[in-house]
């Protein structure tokens, strides 16, 4: 069985974005970069399937600049992926979701994957589209937001989160799944494994190597702006908690008019 984990490197969730005002570009060069937290669930699930036995090969696939190599080594190869395909091309610097999905689809089509796992969304663009677009481009079924996966012979059953509950979905392989918290507990890489990960095969490709032309963007970012400023915090002062609660309820009801 061949599994692809399609992963993205993103700015650390601790990142502060300090924009003074609207700007056409966001300088991200100083940001610390990590594996997209949701993608760690995809990696862990693939590795768990491999550990459960049988002939399983796990390939990590990413689009990103040269700096993704460290993340791929530490958070994919060192925790159990067998090899990596890294697509690095300046033509993809501002590529939108559709363009990225087109290139990823071309990379996936070089091999016969039975299972393609992604995160539900990247915590930088918060888009949550690439998995679905990829499935459409490959003509494969897609199940999103999964919290449980059972593989059968040529098919799978997954649980996915919906409002106020969950759906149990069945589909055939090959399939594209997007993973989230609840699915598993991603492991951390050990130091010896990080050292050894450097020996695993890593292929770096351009779009030309893949024979794919990057489609024109369907969506372009025109402007970045800081979130609207928030007002001062009004501290509720009172002699005792009951009086504080009474005053807070009054303010929410009469001043803010939210209850």
């Amino acid at each position: 069985m061949k599994i692809a984990v399609v992963v993205k490197q993103v700015p650390d969730s601790e990142t502060r974005i300090n924009l003074a005002g609207p700007a056409p570009e966001l300088d991200q060069s100083g940001f610390t970069r990590i594996l997209n937290p949701y993608d760690a669930y995809a990696v862990e699930e693939a590795v768990k399937i491999k550990e459960a036995g049988g002939e399983v090969e796990v390939t990590a696939i990413t689009i990103g600049p040269d700096t993704v190599k460290e993340t791929i080594k530490k958070d994919c190869l060192a925790v159990g992926c067998d090899k990596a395909v890294i697509i690095t091309d300046p033509a993809l610097d501002k590529a939108d979701d559709n363009a990225q999905a087109t290139v990823l689809a071309a990379a996936l089509q070089r091999d016969q994957f039975d299972l393609i796992l992604l995160g539900i969304k990247a915590i930088d663009d918060d888009s949550g589209q690439v998995g679905i677009l990829l499935a459409e481009k490959l003509g494969l079924p897609h199940v999103g937001f999964i919290t449980k996966l059972d593989l059968g012979e040529g098919n799978l059953t997954a649980e996915r989160e919906i409002e106020g509950g969950k759906e149990v979905v069945e589909t055939s392989l090959p399939a594209v799944l997007t993973c989230q918290k609840g699915l598993n507990e991603p492991r951390l890489p050990s130091l010896p494994n990080i050292m050894k990960a450097g020996m695993k095969p890593q292929e770096t490709l351009t779009c030309a190597d893949l024979g794919v032309e990057v489609p024109a963007n369907l969506v372009d970012i025109k402007m970045y702006s800081p979130p609207p400023a928030r007002g001062e915090c009004k501290l509720v002062e009172a002699d005792d908690p009951a009086a504080a609660a009474r005053e807070l309820a009054r303010l929410l009801n009469e001043e803010a008019k939210v209850i």
Binding site: P11, T15, R16, I17, L19, L26, I123, D124, D125, D126, A216, N217, L218, V219, D220, I221, K222, M223, Y224, S225, P226, P227
Partner: peptide, 14 residues
Amino acid sequence: PVFAGKCFTDVTVN
């Protein structure tokens, strides 16, 4: 919003 609301973007659609 992007970055979970740490920043907003205006995007144009082709």
